[in-house]
Design a binder for these strands. Structure first.
Length: 417
RNA sequence: CGGGGCAUAGUGCAAUGGCAGCACGAGUCUUUUGGGAAGAUUUAAUCCCAGUUCGAGUCUGGGUGCCCCGACCA
């Protein structure tokens, strides 16, 4: 990507309404644009990050045998009445009418739609198990929207639904998904805790939340660093400094952002949608279901909340909009520009996610400042000075010191180690 | 939904009821290029509707929008 062609406009200051660090930085870097309270556009930079995360999720979902689908956002009233959530959903559904005055809802989740879909395709134990997922827009009529992308009324969520013949199979798969979730969050540069919480609305059972620990978090979590015991405040009966009931070391209380959630659904939706199958003995049984969500936008803000400094964002390598930023110091110097172009062409071929600051009449300080704000993990800096040594400089955004390396070595540099 | 706050140029801030200004940004030209450069020049704003007043950005009423705390959620 040529920086002169990129649709973006960085800002030195954030609007005073923005209080969350992630909101400020995503705004200043022009990753997102606000259309209304809790309504955001993703601009090219923001969408690149979004896509990178979606792709990580896709890979891990496919590894679980999940098959990708795309379900509608607009749902007829009847579907939600079958599960009795048309009026009971919390937060409430966004409801609208068509030109025939028929009622519709904008989907806030897809248990209903997917159960109905599955019910006409599952007949025998031979059809089970299976898992479907999508990365799609959800609409939630929240009471309040906060912190930029942290809670919005429209957001893109990855939702996976699994269907099982019995409890044992469900439990095995549930744990597999939990592992995959840890992997996804790790690739996104986040340390998360798996936290037990109450499963209101979805199930009477406990559910598992995945909480990223950061001070801006909306949830309080009590947890044990040693054995991993963790509970959400709403159900915990312990306090900071108490002894862990499982391993007796001291419990800590922290704030967290819920970046993912997995729900055992049992036969709740199978019953509503008559989702049954015949087992080996010909006996009819309800399918055991579970659903698993990750909010991509919230994940993006959480990453920024955790990875930033006074200069801007510090993206983890896999989610960064670009991995490498090529910055010529004196672009008006022929040799500097030629070398920069050569490295850019090479980078496009080998790394793909590379951006070249080809702008003239922009001071070096501004180029560096902008690169830091955008959080690009590596800069390749080319100047007359480095060229005297037939070299370029590679600088890492996360503060590790920079190194001078020969141009031909820069062409084959491994940025992922 | 309860409580609190805010609304002036693209952004951040000013303006006793009396000529709407500053900085950054953006445009043009020149000079610059190792950490958000310099000069010259141009550009752009009082959220909406009423009311009070000789006169409203400022006062009053209503509306709308946005932010924060609580509650809930990915």
């Amino acid at each position: 990507m040529l920086q002169s062609k990129l649709f973006y406009k960085t800002k030195k200051l954030a609007p005073k309404e923005a209080t969350a660090i992630s909101h400020k930085l995503l705004y200043r870097g022009d990753f997102i644009d606000q259309l209304g309270s809790g309504i955001y556009s993703f601009l090219p930079l923001g969408w690149m990050v979004h896509q990178n995360i979606s792709n990580i999720i896709r890979q891990e979902m496919s590894a679980l045998g999940g098959q990708e689908v795309f379900l509608p956002a607009m749902h007829p009233r009847s579907v939600w009445q079958k599960s009795d959530r048309w009026d009971k959903m919390k937060p409430p559904l966004f409801k609208l009418k068509d030109s025939h005055k028929k009622d519709f809802a904008l989907g806030s989740t897809h248990e209903e739609v997917i159960s109905q879909l599955a019910s006409s395709r599952v007949a025998s134990y031979k059809d089970l198990p299976f898992a479907l997922f999508q990365i799609q827009s959800k609409f939630r009529n929240e009471i309040r929207y906060t912190g930029g992308l942290l809670r919005t009324r429209e957001f893109i969520m990855k939702d996976l639904y699994s269907f099982h013949a019995d409890q044992a199979d469900f439990e095995k798969y549930y744990e597999k998904v939990a592992k995959a979730y840890f992997k996804i969050f790790k690739r996104c540069g986040l340390k998360v805790l798996r936290v037990k919480a109450s499963g209101e609305g979805f199930t009477n059972d406990f559910t598992d939340e995945f909480q990223a620990i950061t001070p801006i978090g909306e949830d309080s979590i009590i947890y044990c660093e040693k054995c991993g015991f963790a509970k959400n405040k709403e159900i915990f009966e312990y306090n900071d400094g108490d002894k862990c009931p499982e391993c007796k070391s001291l419990l800590k209380k922290e704030r967290g952002i819920e970046v993912g959630n997995i729900f055992p659904l049992g036969d709740k939706y199978s019953k509503s949608f008559d989702l049954k199958f015949k087992d080996e003995l010909g006996k009819e049984k309800f399918v055991i279901m579970a659903s698993y969500g990750i909010g991509v936008g919230r994940l993006i803000s959480t990453i920024v909340e955790v990875h930033n400094d006074d200069k801007g964002i510090i993206w983890p390598k896999e989610v960064a909009p670009f991995l490498v930023h090529i910055v010529p110091v004196e672009i008006n110097d022929n040799k500097v520009e030629k070398t920069a172009k050569k490295l850019y062409d090479n980078g496009q071929e080998k790394i793909k996610r590379v951006i070249y600051d080809d702008r003239r009449n922009v001071s070096t300080g501004e180029k560096f400042a902008e690169s830091d704000l955008l959080g690009i993990p590596f800069k390749i800096i080319i100047s007359k000075k480095t060229l005297e040594k037939d070299s370029v400089e590679i600088e890492q955004r996360d503060g590790k010191k920079s190194q001078l390396i020969k141009i031909k070595d820069a062409m084959n540099f491994n940025f992922y180690v």
